[in-house]
Nucleic acid binder design. Structure first.
Lengths: 190, 190
DNA sequence: ATCGTTTTTTGATATAGGTCAAAAGAATCC
DNA sequence: GGATTCTTTTGACCTATATCAAAAAACGAT
């Protein structure tokens, strides 16, 4: 879904408003694995994912990559806290496929928030939506077995599960890659 | 912190705006354990917690209570998805102490969002803040040992940890009450 | 203060899922 | 199209934490 359609769907901007808003976004073509943000840097941009899948991840104390969130097409992606509070990012952000994204800096975004009541609404709606998604995930992780967590992933992100390496999904679901591999095998047999 | 001070701190409302906004909230005195929302009902209100601690929780398939989130003083509390999407709540919501809260219905809130650009901003800021908190928790839960999760709780919610029963904290942290009891005992010895 | 209820602790035992290591299978590159 | 690298699977073993059960402690109401 193009960013234009996405914005129109959520809030009924006028043509003029929409044009102005879109003019503050930059289209970027990025290739697979090219880092957009690195752990320790301040994340300066918010991205809309038009094509591709992104993720943010960090290296734990054993140097293992832990995927925190995936961002599919039609989602806004950033290193949340870093972007909004201009603090060093705890996460790396990257695209997992060659991708087309649209970026906007914090200043430009704030400017749009100031200028348009409707833009502020858009921000609120997106933030609330994201919040409910994260709460869902939290629920899945907090008290479910490895098998149930995999099933949650299957229903919630069927598009993503077959497009990214197993190890990333495993860490996203809070289990080892070996465990996920065994679960998946057992699933297929059933 | 009173709701008035809280709102003023976040966004610079004029006196008139603030008066109008506050007039849409109802002050409620609720006693401990009195249910505000029950699993299956639609949650009709958003609450500001002025005094007391609230939580939302659900009963899992074994009938055990799982606490999902705590809401301390100065926080907005609701059954998130239920309130915004008017869907049956997955959670029960209650106060854990005799409490003073301020409530607003979805219609009145939407009315304020429509009326004031600044109100919309308030909503966005609160939602974003909540989002980062939940992401933090997710992080803590996803890959940390029981001991580390307890330490996260100590630093993130030192006020809450000594005011609510152990079992609720244990389920909030995704571990059994026995495990939390043993961890805490060991901590004291060090 | 005392009885009943709720919460916390403790001990014994069980198990889901982790870790390590190696093999098998895919994908990528010259 | 084989060599190299990356990803997934498999097996053996181990550990953190769950579960069960019962005692101890704390809390609340009369």
């Amino acid at each position: 879904m193009t960013i234009t359609d996405f914005l129109k769907d959520l809030v009924d901007f006028s043509e003029a408003e929409l044009d102005d808003i879109l003019s503050h976004f930059q289209k970027e073509i990025v290739s697979k694995s090219q880092p957009l943000v690195e752990q320790g840097q301040v994340c300066r941009k918010l991205y809309y994912v038009e094509k591709g899948i992104g993720r943010n991840y960090y290296l734990n104390s054993d140097g293992k990559e832990i995927t925190q969130l995936f961002f599919g097409e039609g989602r806004f992606m950033t290193s949340l806290e870093s972007f909004f509070e201009e603090s060093p990012s705890l996460y790396n952000v990257e695209m997992l496929e060659d991708a087309e994204i649209h970026s906007i800096s914090k200043n430009e975004l704030e400017l749009l928030f100031d200028r348009y009541h409707k833009m502020e609404r858009l921000g609120r709606l997106l933030s609330t939506e994201m919040l409910t998604k994260v709460v869902h995930k939290l629920n899945a992780i907090q008290f479910q077995t490895a098998k149930e967590r995999y099933e949650y992933m299957l229903t919630e992100y069927p598009d993503i599960i077959y497009r990214v390496p197993l190890g990333m999904i495993a860490s996203y679901l809070g289990m080892s890659q070996e465990t996920l591999s065994r679960i998946r095998k057992k699933k297929i047999r059933d």
